[in-house]
Design a protein around this nucleic acid. Sequence first.
DNA 1: AATGAATGAGCTTTCATTCAT
DNA 2: GATGAATGAAAGCTCATTCAT
Lengths: 217, 217, 217, 217
Amino acid sequence: MLDAAVRIFGQRGYMAASMDEIAELAGVSKPLVYLYLNSKDDLFSACIRREARALTEAVRAGVCPGLPADGQLWSGLRAFFTHTARNPDAWRVLHLHARTHGERFAAEVAAMREDIVAFVTQLIAAAARDAHRRPHLPEGEVAGLAEALVGAAESLADWAGATEGVTAKQAAATLMNFAWAGLGDLMAGRPWVAPEDPQADPEQAPVAPSVPAAQAG
Amino acid sequence: MLDAAVRIFGQRGYMAASMDEIAELAGVSKPLVYLYLNSKDDLFSACIRREARALTEAVRAGVCPGLPADGQLWSGLRAFFTHTARNPDAWRVLHLHARTHGERFAAEVAAMREDIVAFVTQLIAAAARDAHRRPHLPEGEVAGLAEALVGAAESLADWAGATEGVTAKQAAATLMNFAWAGLGDLMAGRPWVAPEDPQADPEQAPVAPSVPAAQAG
Amino acid sequence: MLDAAVRIFGQRGYMAASMDEIAELAGVSKPLVYLYLNSKDDLFSACIRREARALTEAVRAGVCPGLPADGQLWSGLRAFFTHTARNPDAWRVLHLHARTHGERFAAEVAAMREDIVAFVTQLIAAAARDAHRRPHLPEGEVAGLAEALVGAAESLADWAGATEGVTAKQAAATLMNFAWAGLGDLMAGRPWVAPEDPQADPEQAPVAPSVPAAQAG
Amino acid sequence: MLDAAVRIFGQRGYMAASMDEIAELAGVSKPLVYLYLNSKDDLFSACIRREARALTEAVRAGVCPGLPADGQLWSGLRAFFTHTARNPDAWRVLHLHARTHGERFAAEVAAMREDIVAFVTQLIAAAARDAHRRPHLPEGEVAGLAEALVGAAESLADWAGATEGVTAKQAAATLMNFAWAGLGDLMAGRPWVAPEDPQADPEQAPVAPSVPAAQAG
DNA sequence: AATGAATGAGCTTTCATTCAT
DNA sequence: GATGAATGAAAGCTCATTCAT
């Protein structure tokens, strides 16, 4: 029954998906759906939880624990891209629709995401330790790098899903090239250095969104 | 009037946004919205077009043409993160909602995106030329790398928008570190190398999504 | 300005006609229409009155007063069919739409109609007198016959308007054949005689519409 | 449920009838109406079909097959007037509103009407044969006469419905007198003869509607 | 345990009608 | 005198949700 829901939600989005359609695809009657899962919100939530768990477990199961950090990352990425490619609707639910509709769902996905980010963060830290040097990476930077890596992975998953003929392995390799070579340099103490910035820098402070004037008609 | 629409669409998404709400926020009556912009679809489309143009122009205006490739990328990224941070609803419309609701809108955003991808691609190629070496980057790989870079930027924009205290400059710096140091290695002929893969490799072929069983109830 | 209104009302009907369309076709702005004619109702009413007057005057002008009764009827019918054929929208307004929408308008048309019925009634009576015989037509019957004749004329006007290649003269001739030959027999004392009716006759009393049961779902 | 629809449609017309009103009169909620009959159009169509069938069947059932032509016509007319008098809203839907709103509905009614016209045509032809004479009626004329008869019947139905104290039997008798006595003469070779027409005859050719000047304000 | 039948609430869209100018 | 600009009110239609069975 959740399968049907994931499929419909993945293809239509939360709002455009109708309970009728889901019930029909599941081959059951609508009241039954309400009996098992109380409401559309709860149904969506259940989908998110199930698929979030499935994705994290797929990644965790794919990581080979004994390897060095890059090998672990490589294996994890391959598992990630494989899973998202095999469950495109689930991936759309998690990455697209859950973030699109309401704080509650976004939070559920964010929890899963932080799981993965934490794992990657620890990988990066471990790699830095392995380098047997003074930590060239400031602590605070690691979080941003992990975010970037995970974000790039997510985008590449979308891209691989939308582009014919891109395998999970290729996507993983592209990302490893893009990321690890760069991380490698960073960890070896060769960061990219910003050029001089002669002008005053208005973006120094956290940017506040400028509220557009409400009266525009 | 479009301002209000962007704000509502950005927060609620296309389907959950109601014309009532948009009109109210704009301070006008609903029929007026229909007088100026013919329908909900057209209104959404107008929002997308306006914001897509605003974003591309902001990036283009932010790039400093005389600099070397990494300097150009750096300045472009800063403009990008600044713009998205200042217009979070616009960014949500473009990156989240437009891709979620229907081919027509997705296509309008895809056009904008390809603009940017093309710009980045050319930057990468230029950087490779500047290295005065034999091209160590296979041609086909550049497209994937540009995708990864743009995707990472998009994800970091989301992240910066959602995380307190991250400035546009910091986001840009993180991404430059993550990407350019890596690209630098790549262009210097030091790609990351995948470890041996002893097992059979089921992901070699393009993955086909396994259709979930329809009968699950 | 009324011309435009008649045209639009004739083609679309009262409800489907929009004041926008009428104003546009008239080449003026909408508030001007409201300045001259206070509301949609009044505009429709004005159309009806103008066209009703035009029709009655056309018929009156077409009748040749010196002729015997059948000659007068013949000339009147030709004028009638000619006018309706030349002003199809006006005819549709009077015969179709005015009777379709609300008591008020129906009453205005009914007044015009009674004008004509009265004229025909008097013609029939005159013809009966001309026959130099005892009146074979009971008084009460004349009204019904006049109704039938006018009704047949109206229907034939619709038919002639909808059928290619039927001239006003042909329509008039068909109706004269149909009606006068019959009336001639009647006035000559040779009415059609109903066959014996052995069963009880439930329609003797004025029929009351059977109210359908309201609860049918 | 259709009963309520026929009643509302008959009184208000297609456009002025609201689904709310129909549902309320039917004693059900609006969505239920949409569940059973998909749209306002379909609902109207269903009304037309039901009432058209009911009317034709009532007429067919009322005709006594063994009688001579005039007797059959007499019985058919009585059934017709009885049915229309008993179902005034249905009659308004068929005769007034269905022809007023759109080709699709007009066509459905036209089909029913042609049924009846064909029946009458055949009756007239049979009567002419029964007269044991050379056919005095030119073939082409029969169509026009049948039209006139049916049209007169329709108009008389309206009239009988609008006039207090007119029974179905009286309406039928009036029409028989009006029509059959006339047809009798025609079939006996005594048509009405048009007087000489000394003037030029502008209506000889099929009349073309004079387009009213659009600019009148 | 399972559903056919039903609905309240809300959506997009339209249109007769009116001011401020 | 004439109108561009604006709106209140209502219509068709949909859907998440619930009883009675």
